[in-house]
Design a protein around this nucleic acid. Structure first.
Length: 935
RNA sequence: GGGCCUGUAGCUCAGCUGGUUAGAGCGCCACGCUUACACCGUGGAUGUCGGGGGUUCGAGUCCCUCCGGGCCCACCA
């Protein structure tokens, strides 16, 4: 062997001369490691328990808050909803985050990776009601030591009528009790999956810290005029009896019928008097709430009616016929009945045409029991009496029958499929009800501030969207579409019971009337408050609800009003300023694409208003998990395959591999096959490592030391391999920096399999060498051994974010003294480059192809790979010839060529370039297989 | 109706700014217990790159158009 490096790296001589007795790092960046504990038989089994416990014990992922903001990488982890169980989609997206967290940690940043539980909100409220047989009544006083009447499983729920009313504080306590159990299970799953969360940084969206943050943020919004209340018609869910925000809407198909209904012209003394004007409606039950007929101003058919009046059928109410551009000529009859309120267009007409309010639908979705004063005719009152207190569905039957009897229904109702707005958690179409609600400005409506300036909040928030780095970038469009399409401010008040209370009281005037215009505001230092049980400063409890006293605001805030503050909650806003300045604004918000319009947007709103900044620099958006039918994996299906079951069956590294194989923003198939490949990779890492480290075990001298000194790598093939590895490191690092973890994995993995299949086979014989001790072998053997160790050291780090358990296991065999691999530095290409010098990575490729060509001969001869080749002539394309020549000794060893190996230049088009790089064995002579080795 | 993503081997997916003969893994076929690994190894077969136009010396890649999937927004007369 004469192929010594021409440019031995500087410092190498010093390094080799360094003291040899200590493990770990020494001067000159040369690592010395003692291989201590390679097991005889490697296994993935039990690694999760072992290392979860070790990481917890050693505080591997504990956040070091002595680091400054520049040294920190902070993550605004999505708090999963604690209303049931986690499914495979969670495992998928949380793995994406963890991979990034581990990369950044190895890069030397201190990772702030908290975990929260979203136990605030309607799902938990419903569960607590059923589970404990209680319901929240915020007017009740708190009962010390209250025990619920019932403690049931998921299956048996308690009927509403049998539920015991309890105070809000008692209700919250029960919620915390119920969710604590789920949260333990969630944590167990995340630990098993290997999320590198710092479990000391942990919050619940209903805990006192979150309530304080939510109330504080609200009070700040109020103080700056960003939060306001308004009495206005709004979308209302009649089942949950609460107002609903635009972001919670879901348009669904809803079957209905068109009814052609006659109104009658009022034109006394003319031939037109009483002539019918037909409108079409799907909601005839709202006839009594009609306030006008509306048609498009340019519609010739109705020009003669504008400015006149008509009389409604059945109820005999005189109504104007008006023009408005929002009326569509080709919809129905082209002229619509405007009711208060059938839909949002009605609200627009009502507002812009200054129409009266004639509501007949109450908050429970039924027709009001009071006969409206605008219905004056006796017969009209009679019809109304028939629908009083009925559901809209029943009332419709009554009205349609009455219209048919009176002859005002033209033809029979025609079935139609229409879209109706639903609350995403509800199952009845939303009604529009007028109520007093709280809003936070979000750019959905014009805003003139107290000092009279007009603020373009929508434009400001669109600007924030441009400033935020979305991964993948096209997700920004969803943000922009949403912000651009907002049609109102953010409605945050909910007429529910379990959640963060709106921290206000209102004075009760001497007249007994509540003065909503002058809310009583608590000071921030008393937060959190519950206005239903706490008393505002300057009042006493006995003044509650009496003239001259006060009442508490009964409404709570929507869940998103709290979860829009997760960076503030986790980061200790105002309660731990020292922490907050080290983590905020955060680096990363990982989340699903479905909640860009809610969670992502609302978090941007809160941060923009409070801090005039983005809450984070990057948003990483994960895709969906699709089941094999290419549909979004449903909860029911997801629950069939429990995440814990998956982890137990395939191993966490395997499941993580499947998740990490999917790019951000791209939907991925739920594929067990991919997990099996991940498991195979993890096992391969263990086995290849065992091999690479086996030479370091010095049975003669007992030192068992490996010196990772680049200067000891002298052979061309070894240097070529490390040259290839160096560029893998560079590509993987670059990919990670661009939030393209998939490419980082793929690049590493591809190299690793070539490393195992070709390089290991090629150097095996040379690495075994003559002696067993690293200190007493030929330079060729040492070169192989050191190259193996350097490659292993690098590969383990590259894989560590993806397969944290297997890599930690291998690390423990030889690098235990350095601590966890997950705190080890991310590799640079420096060491591999230093060893590689000017070597060409193509040498390994060429040698690998040559080896494959030799193997093919044996495969086609159907003989064992250990069969010797007595002589062979191999045709090598010109481009590969130098590479094969440079590594010919290893090629001979790998192919077990015992006699002559004659390399000749391949003729033009001789080999198939796609196979073995065009290298063809022209002729060969196979020997007898070696005698089988005795055990 | 407006918008975003997507269509490459039986399956799951790579293919970056257009450049040799389109790749990987799984599955399939054949062989092999070779001292890292049988939870394995070796070799092999497999494609009108959704269809049709265009730009170009050259298109899986760019443009137009159509078709198929997925999603978001608007649509309650």
């Amino acid at each position: 062997m004469s192929d010594f490096p021409t440019n031995a790296p500087t410092g190498a001589a010093d390094a080799t001369a360094a003291t040899t007795s200590s493990a770990g790092r020494v001067a000159g960046d040369v690592v010395r490691a003692v291989v201590a504990g390679v097991p005889d038989r490697v296994s993935l089994d039990g690694l999760e328990e072992t290392y979860d416990a070790r990481w917890a014990e050693q505080g591997t992922y504990a956040f070091d808050r002595s680091k400054t903001r520049e040294q920190v990488f902070s993550i605004d982890t999505p708090p999963p909803t604690v209303s049931g169980s986690l499914h495979v989609g969670h495992v998928f997206s949380y793995t994406h985050t963890d991979v990034v967290a581990r990369f950044q940690r190895m890069r030397g940043l201190e990772v702030f990776y908290p975990m929260g539980w979203d136990d605030n909100g309607l799902p938990t409220e419903r569960r607590v009601q059923n589970y404990y047989g209680v319901r929240c009544d915020p007017t009740l006083p708190y009962l010390e030591g209250f025990e619920p009447p019932h403690e049931g499983g998921e299956g048996k729920s308690v009927k509403a009528a049998d539920q015991v009313p309890v105070s809000r504080r008692n209700f919250i306590e029960l919620c915390e009790r119920l969710t604590a159990e789920d949260e333990k299970q969630f944590e167990a799953l995340w630990r098993r999956l290997g999320l590198s969360v710092d479990w000391a940084q942990h919050y619940q969206t209903i805990d006192a810290r979150s309530r304080t943050a939510a109330q504080r943020a609200f009070l700040r919004n109020l103080g700056r005029g960003e939060a306001y209340q308004a009495e206005a018609p709004g979308l209302w869910d009649v089942t949950f009896q609460t107002a609903v925000a635009q972001a919670e809407l879901e348009a669904r198909d809803y079957p209905g019928h068109f009814h052609k209904v006659a109104f009658h012209r009022v034109a006394p003394g003319t031939p037109d008097d009483g002539a019918p004007v037909y409108i079409e409606t799907t909601r005839p039950e709202l006839l009594a709430a009609c306030v006008a007929l509306v048609a498009h101003p340019d519609d010739e058919r109705y020009q003669h009616l504008f400015g006149t009046t008509v009389r409604s059928p059945l109820f005999d109410v005189e109504l104007p016929v008006l023009a408005h551009p929002a009326a569509e000529r080709d919809k129905g009859a082209g002229i619509a009945m405007c009711c208060t309120f059938g839909d949002l267009t009605d609200v627009q007409w009502w507002r812009e045409l200054q129409l009266p309010t004639r509501s007949i639908i109450t908050r429970d979705g039924r027709i009001t029991r009071e006969t409206p004063d605008w219905i004056t005719s006796h017969s009209g009152q009679g019809v109304f009496a028939e629908i009083e207190g009925k559901t809209t569905f029943s009332a419709r039957q009554v009205v349609v029958d009455a219209l048919r009897d009176s002859g005002d229904l033209d033809g029979e109702p025609v079935p139609t499929q229409r879209k109706a707005n639903f609350f995403e958690k509800g199952d009845k179409p939303l009604e529009i009800v007028t109520s007093r609600q709280w809003y936070i400005r979000n750019g959905g409506r014009d805003w003139t501030t107290a000092d009279g300036t007009v603020r373009d909040l929508r434009g400001e928030l669109l600007g924030r969207g441009k400033e935020l780095a979305f991964h993948p970038d096209f997700m920004r469009v969803r943000y922009e579409n949403w912000v651009g399409g907002l049609n109102g401010d953010w409605l945050i008040s909910r007429q529910r019971f379990f959640g963060v209370a709106i921290p206000l009281w209102y004075p009760v005037l001497e007249s007994g009337e509540v003065d909503h215009d002058h809310p009583i505001v608590p000071s921030e230092d008393v937060l959190p408050v519950d206005p239903s049980s706490d008393v505002p400063a300057g009042y006493t409890e006995d003044q509650r609800g009496v003239p001259g006293g006060f009442v508490g605001e009964n409404d709570i805030m929507d869940t998103w009003a709290t979860s829009s503050l997760t960076p503030q909650i986790a980061g200790g806003w105002e309660v731990d300023p020292d922490l907050f300045e080290r983590v905020f604004p955060m680096d990363l918000r990982p989340q699903g694409q479905d909640i860009i319009r809610t969670w992502l947007f609302s978090t941007v709103v809160r941060s923009h208003l409070e801090f005039d900044s983005l809450p984070w620099k990057n948003a990483a958006i994960s895709g969906w998990i699709l089941d094999p039918d290419r549909k979004k994996m449903s909860k029911s299906k997801g629950n069939v395959v429990t995440p814990m079951g998956l982890l137990e069956e395939h191993g966490s590294d395997a499941v993580r591999y499947w998740a990490a194989s999917a790019r951000l923003g791209t939907d991925a198939a739920f594929e067990v096959g991919q997990m099996k490949i991940g498991r195979r990779l993890a096992i391969k890492i263990l086995n290849a490592s065992k091999f690479a480290l086996s030479f370091g075990v010095d049975t003669e001298s007992g030192t068992g030391e490996i010196v990772l000194d680049p200067a000891l790598v002298t052979e061309t093939l070894d240097r070529a391999m490390l040259a290839g590895l160096a560029s893998v490191v560079e590509k993987a690092t670059e990919a990670f920096e661009a939030y393209d973890h998939t490419r980082a994995l793929e690049t590493t993995e591809t190299f690793f399999w070539t490393f195992c299949d070709d390089y290991l086979e090629l150097v095996k014989d040379r690495a075994y060498g003559a002696g067993a001790a690293t200190s007493d072998v030929s330079p060729e053997t040492r070169s192989a051994r050191v190259a193996l160790a350097i490659a292993l050291d690098t590969l383990l780090r590259l894989f560590a974010p993806f397969v944290p358990f297997a890599t930690e296991e291998v690390w423990s065999w030889w690098r235990a003294s350095e601590g966890s691999i997950h705190r080890a530095p991310w590799p640079t290409s420096d060491v591999a480059r230093a060893a590689a010098g000017d070597a060409d990575p193509a040498v390994l490729t060429a040698a690998g192809h040559a080896l494959a060509a030799l193997r093919k001969v044996k495969s086609e001869a159907k003989v064992s790979m250990r069969t010797p080749i007595l002589a062979a002539q191999v045709a090598v394309p010109a481009a590969s010839l130098a590479g094969v020549e440079a590594s010919v000794v290893d090629v001979r060893n790998g192919g077990r060529v015992t006699g002559t190996l004659d390399l000749v230049a391949a003729a033009e088009g001789q080999g198939d370039a796609a196979v073995q790089g065009g290298i063809v064995v022209v002729s060969s002579e196979l020997g007898e297989p070696e005698a089988r080795k005795k055990a």
